[in-house]
């Protein structure tokens, strides 16, 4: 799995951090998403998929289904 984030779309809600804190963080200054792991380990995939699903700005996209 490869994770992409679109900083321009990000609204800073932090929903992704609540769901998958090992993969996503937010910048201190403006809350925009910070991707900690662009190829997260297998055990994180379910949480990352949920994070992409709940993102209220559709700013997280995933490549690959592994």
């Amino acid at each position: 799995m490869k994770v992409f984030v679109d900083e321009d779309r990000c609204c800073g809600a932090g929903s992704c951090v609540l769901v998958a804190p090992d993969v996503f963080d937010q910048r201190d200054e403006d809350g925009v998403v910070v991707l900690l792991e662009d190829r997260p380990a297998d055990h994180l995939h379910a949480a990352v998929r949920e994070a992409a699903g709940v993102c209220p700005a559709a700013a997280i996209t995933l490549d690959g289904t592994a």
Binding site: G12, A13, G14, V17, L18, Q26, R27, D28, D30, G31
Partner: peptide
């Protein structure tokens, strides 16, 4: 309520 402090507001929410 956060004003230009989204991350800090989310943390305080928790």
């Amino acid at each position: 309520l956060g004003w230009n402090m989204p991350k800090q507001a989310r943390q305080l929410r928790l």
